[in-house]
């Protein structure tokens, strides 16, 4: 298997992540992102960059929330591409555009030059705004302001355990918001 997205093996990184290695998980998601971005942009000709980035983010979120559905005995890439494909088909459907994306297209590894995240995500910011107040505040504090858990917990009156649960639930809600947009 070729090694787009760094010399490390994705499967090894995910296995390490599953044992609680946060640095490995961060590395994995960072390596995956440009590859996923390349795949999405190549399959979504004619859609603008922001739209594609939303799909990339939805894919990352799904990879995160559904990582228990990866079988550690199998390579991670086909699993990750299957999720990207699912999210892309879903995003097209929301646009009212029926698509046929051959699975085989997602089986090959697509080399893509690492591209920067184009813009501040307006759409994603709107989504965060639709979360319950405390979820939104927590996400803004942790991600946008980049503060540590202790400080955000203190500000929102959450003990460390409660903050963990709150963050996990908030991410799950964020993933569901997209689905609810469908007619």
């Amino acid at each position: 298997m070729s090694d787009a997205g760094g010399s490390e093996d994705w499967s090894d990184l995910m296995r390490a992540a599953n044992t609680g290695d946060r640095a490995a998980y961060h590395r994995l998601l960072t390596l995956m992102t440009p590859v996923l971005r390349g795949i999405v942009r190549a399959r979504a000709a004619g859609m603008d960059v922001d739209w594609c980035e939303d799909v990339v983010q939805e894919t990352l979120l799904a990879i995160h929330l559904k990582r228990a559905t990866w079988d550690e005995a199998l390579p991670l890439r086909p699993w990750a591409y299957a999720i990207a494909r699912h999210k892309l088909v879903d995003a097209f459907r929301r646009r009212g555009r029926a698509v046929h994306l051959p699975v085989e297209d997602f089986a090959e590894t697509l080399e893509s030059a690492p591209e920067p995240d184009p813009t501040e995500r307006r759409d994603a910011a709107v989504l965060i705004g639709r979360l319950p107040e405390r979820d939104a505040a927590l996400m803004r504090c942790l991600a946008l302001e980049g503060r540590d858990s202790e400080e955000c917990g203190g500000r929102l009156g959450l003990k460390p355990g409660a903050l963990r649960v709150a963050l996990h639930r908030a991410l799950q809600r964020l993933a569901r918001l997209r689905l609810e947009d469908e007619r």
Partner: peptide
């Protein structure tokens, strides 16, 4: 939210 911010949340 930038994708890097999302990653740090995840």
């Amino acid at each position: 939210m930038k994708t890097d911010d999302l990653i740090s949340l995840l």
